[in-house]
């Protein structure tokens, strides 16, 4: 089966700064991959390129064998690292919006998760706390039956209890053939759910191995290896 994600000599320049340099990367289906690296290593740039929010300077991206476009957006579920809903919308309006545009969105699944979290669907998005906004966004993203979930810092701004809920939500809502790509700094929190780890350093691929390989090869946890590789 074709990899869900392939990057070939992918390069992105901002002015004279190379955010990504000739990145070659392949990601198979059915795994949870952690996209890790220090600030400015190119994680968010890579994620935006995968979602067609940035135009590559050079190189190619293939998602399920297709360049990012309308067809790939149907199968990619993306969680940005910021609030992206219009503030005037109510939670129920946002659910209707997702249901209108994404055929693979399950209103039932979203409603169930919102009920568990006791989030009032009549609340305006602007009236929710930062953590609740992040939960609502994650619930919507994970309520799609996507082939590739791309989550940019999904647990960055929430308390430890909410982190556990979010990680449980991710694990409970993706099917075996789907792939989850998670970018985060909170490695120790997600290490246990990861199958694979991708390290980015200065816009280049520093490591792409399974968590088991890392533990066997280096005799360390992902968190310990990260601290060693990216030691300041």
């Amino acid at each position: 089966m074709r990899p869900i994600l392939e990057c070939n000599r992918l390069t992105k320049k901002y002015g004279s700064f190379f955010a990504l340099t000739e990145l070659n990367l392949s990601l198979e289906r059915g795994q949870i991959a952690g996209l890790l690296g220090p600030n400015g290593s190119g994680k968010t740039t890579l994620i935006k390129l995968l979602n067609g929010l940035l135009v590559p300077t050079d190189g190619h991206i293939m998602i399920n064998g297709l360049a990012p476009g309308t067809a790939t957006k149907k199968i990619v579920s993306y969680l940005p690292d910021c609030s992206y809903f219009s503030d005037h919308m109510k939670v129920k309006d946002i659910i209707a919006y997702y249901s209108d545009f994404y055929k693979n969105f399950s209103t039932e699944r979203a409603s169930k998760m919102l009920d568990t979290l006791e989030i009032d669907r009549n609340m305006r998005f602007s009236a929710l706390s930062k953590g609740t906004k992040e939960k609502v966004q994650l619930v919507l993203v994970m309520s799609r039956d996507a082939d590739l979930y791309i989550l940019d810092e999904p647990i960055g701004g929430v308390d430890p209890a909410a982190r556990d809920y979010i990680l449980r939500t991710i694990l409970a809502n993706y099917n075996e053939n789907a792939t989850v790509l998670i970018s985060t700094h909170l490695i120790s929190d997600i290490e246990n759910v990861l199958d694979r780890v991708i390290f980015l350093q200065n816009g280049r691929l520093a490591l792409n191995e399974t968590v088991d390989e890392i533990r066997t090869k280096y005799g360390k946890s992902v968190d310990a290896l990260f601290r060693e590789v990216f030691k300041c």
Binding site: N51, G52, L53, T70, K73, Y78, C82, Y84, F101
Partner: peptide, 18 residues
């Protein structure tokens, strides 16, 4: 501007729409 080029653009441009 807001719908396509501010933070709302993260949602608009990732809809399955050309």
């Amino acid at each position: 501007y807001r719908n396509l080029f501010s933070k709302e653009g993260y949602l608009s441009w990732t809809l399955p729409v050309s």
